[in-house]
Amino acid sequence: MIIAHYANRVPRNHDLGFIRALTKERAPIWDVRPELYFKAFMLREAGRFGALANCFSSLYLWRHDTAYRDWLVSGGYKIVTDPFGRSDIETRFALDARKGGAHDARFAATEDLAIPLDADLTAAFAREIARNREIAVLSDTVVAIVGVDTQNWTFTRILLSATEPNVNESTVVWPLLHLARPLLDTLPKAGER
């Protein structure tokens, strides 16, 4: 599984209604996208949830790298680059992804953690996978994921939740505009091995 995430800063005076309308227009396409577990359409607004600026963002969990590649080469990213320009797309390998018991995601929380240089990687991976499985069983969890960036040696923790998550200073909270979930229900459920 591949996690892909990008964010576009939006000027304070930009009409956020345009972003909401674009999401509403594009969401049905993503609701049936093959090889996609989910796509979260997210919007941070300046002054809310610690945001200093407006930011439109998308977070994906792809089933296979070829599906992600096909989306890129078919022009799927053009809908974003035309109005907002080209942002870096952060990609991660998913170490574990679990469907929780909650259904209606309202928030995403993301957190990046550096993996210490001298860490035992096997043990670190095992700890993060175990932690992710503990988060997945919480009653407000829709999806819990942990990924790894092996270029920068960081873990990325992702939580989609029905309620505003409890966070620390390194966590970014993203209110969701829409969650397209074509294959989300096929993810392993919390508590499954």
Rank of each mutant, 00 (worst) to 15 (best):
T186W: 06
P28L: 04
T150P: 07
K78E: 11
Y77D: 01
V173K: 03
I79P: 09
G17V: 00
G101V: 00
E111N: 04
I115L: 06
A7L: 10
P28H: 02
Q151D: 14
D70G: 06
W71D: 10
T156D: 01
T81R: 05
T81K: 04
W62E: 07
A180N: 05
H103P: 02
V143C: 14
R9Q: 14
R86G: 08
T110R: 03
A190Y: 11
F155G: 06
H103Q: 12
A126W: 00
W71K: 01
T81Q: 01
D140G: 05
A102F: 00
A97C: 11
S139G: 07
L176C: 00
P34K: 01
I145D: 11
E111G: 01
D149V: 14
L138K: 03
G147T: 00
R44S: 10
R106S: 01
D88A: 15
D104A: 08
A136S: 08
D70M: 05
D65A: 14
I19D: 03
R26N: 10
V143Y: 00
H14R: 01
E169K: 09
F155D: 09
M42R: 10
R20P: 03
E134F: 03
T110N: 00
L177K: 04
L16W: 00
I115M: 06
A53T: 15
E25C: 06
Y6W: 12
E90T: 13
G191H: 12
P188Q: 08
L159V: 13
A53V: 15
A97L: 10
H14M: 04
R20S: 05
A119T: 09
L43T: 02
W71Y: 15
Y6F: 13
R63K: 13
V10M: 12
A46N: 12
R9A: 11
A119L: 07
E35C: 09
G17Q: 05
G100R: 12
V167R: 12
A97T: 02
D96Q: 13
K24E: 13
L59W: 03
R86A: 14
A180K: 06
R157F: 04
R20E: 13
G47E: 04
D96S: 15
P11S: 04
E169A: 15
W153L: 15
S74A: 08
P83T: 01
S139A: 15
